[in-house]
């Protein structure tokens, strides 16, 4: 790619645009088009070694590298946060190799690479969500042989998955699976939504944005086109439910977002904060306050009845 190298900055001239060579990108792009055409089906692809270990998002990075263009703005989140090691290093990787703009704001991003969360803010048609996937095969822990799971998908033989959910009910009285909760895509393929909390599953259904999934170690790509039916598996008498909290976010007072529990000391004090840092920041900027926000009077550990007042 002599031509490409010539037109790049000196700083990045040792690499092709977005790190991967053009042939690799074409191979991934072909897999992506097939993945979009067969929603929920895992397309094998010739995953490359990336300059980061497996488990750090090599699949998502390869998908992003094949999709990203110079006009894109990239956001990377790890468990909802923009400022964790994994998110920061992947964001810097693309800032360096593709010279693209990066952002921490969900609304400003055209591509969002995510590890295990879907942003709280509703995504738009002009956005692409790229998931990092550790184990793409939802049936893998039930059936270790790839030849068999292929056949099960081909024959739509998903009884085993229902047995697993049933065993949860038999043992715990409810479906105890809380993340990587299996979904049925467009009434055909059972898909692993990656280890996102099941709280995020309903957001996948009929989403306006395109969702792409990359598993680097397992070398699989799959996708959900926009406005695709995604149903979480359940039973008539045990319908699918998402997590809920008695607490609110300690910083912004949100009650509608996914909350992380933070242990504050060894005396049993704890707080809950939004896992989605951008959502929490936006709410705080809009004047929302939770009981543990530094603006709040000291010692107010109980949620304040005025916590929503500032926003009005």
């Amino acid at each position: 790619m002599e031509q490409t190298v010539n037109q790049m900055d000196d700083t990045a001239s040792a690499y092709n645009f977005a790190y991967l060579d053009e042939q690799t990108k074409r191979m991934i792009r072909r897999a992506l088009l097939k993945a979009v055409a067969i929603p929920g089906y895992q397309v094998p692809f010739a995953g490359r070694e990336m300059p980061m270990p497996y488990g750090w998002g090599t699949g998502g990075v390869q998908v992003t590298a094949a999709v990203i263009g110079p006009q894109d703005t990239l956001k990377v989140i790890d468990q909802g946060a923009d400022d964790t090691t994994n998110a920061v290093s992947i964001r810097q990787f693309f800032a360096k190799t593709a010279n693209v703009a990066t952002t921490e704001k969900t609304a400003d991003a055209s591509i969002i690479q995510t590890r295990h969360r879907i942003p709280e803010r509703e995504l738009r048609e002009d956005q692409i969500l790229v998931y990092q996937v550790p184990i793409p095969e939802p049936l893998r822990f039930l059936e270790p042989r790839e030849t068999e799971t292929r056949k099960m998908h081909a024959l739509e033989e998903y009884g085993l998955m229902h047995v697993k959910l049933y065993e949860d009910i038999a043992r715990h009285g409810h479906i105890a699976t809380t993340y990587a909760y299996p979904v049925m895509v467009d009434d055909r393929y059972v898909m692993d939504p990656s280890p996102t909390p099941k709280f995020d599953n309903p957001k996948m259904d009929n989403m306006a944005a395109l969702q792409l999934f990359g598993a680097g170690r397992e070398k699989r790509i799959y996708a959900l086109p926009p406005y695709t039916k995604v149903r979480s598996l359940d039973f008539e008498d045990h319908p699918f439910e998402v997590q809920s909290w008695d607490d609110e976010c300690g910083m912004c007072g949100a009650r509608d977002s996914y909350l992380d529990e933070v242990i504050l000391d060894d005396k049993g004090n704890r707080m809950f904060v939004c896992s989605d840092t951008d959502y929490c920041t936006e709410r705080q900027e809009a004047g929302h306050r939770g009981p543990q926000h530094h603006d709040q009077p000291l010692g107010s550990t109980k949620s304040s009845p005025n916590s929503e007042k500032a926003a009005e």
Binding site: N16, K25, R29, V36, A66, G69, P225
Partner: peptide, 20 residues
């Protein structure tokens, strides 16, 4: 004209077209 940028632009249109 530009192998990386042009093929990316065309792919993005194809990706949009196939997903919509």
């Amino acid at each position: 004209d530009h192998a990386a940028f042009d093929s990316n632009a065309v792919f993005r249109v194809l990706l949009d077209a196939m997903s919509r």
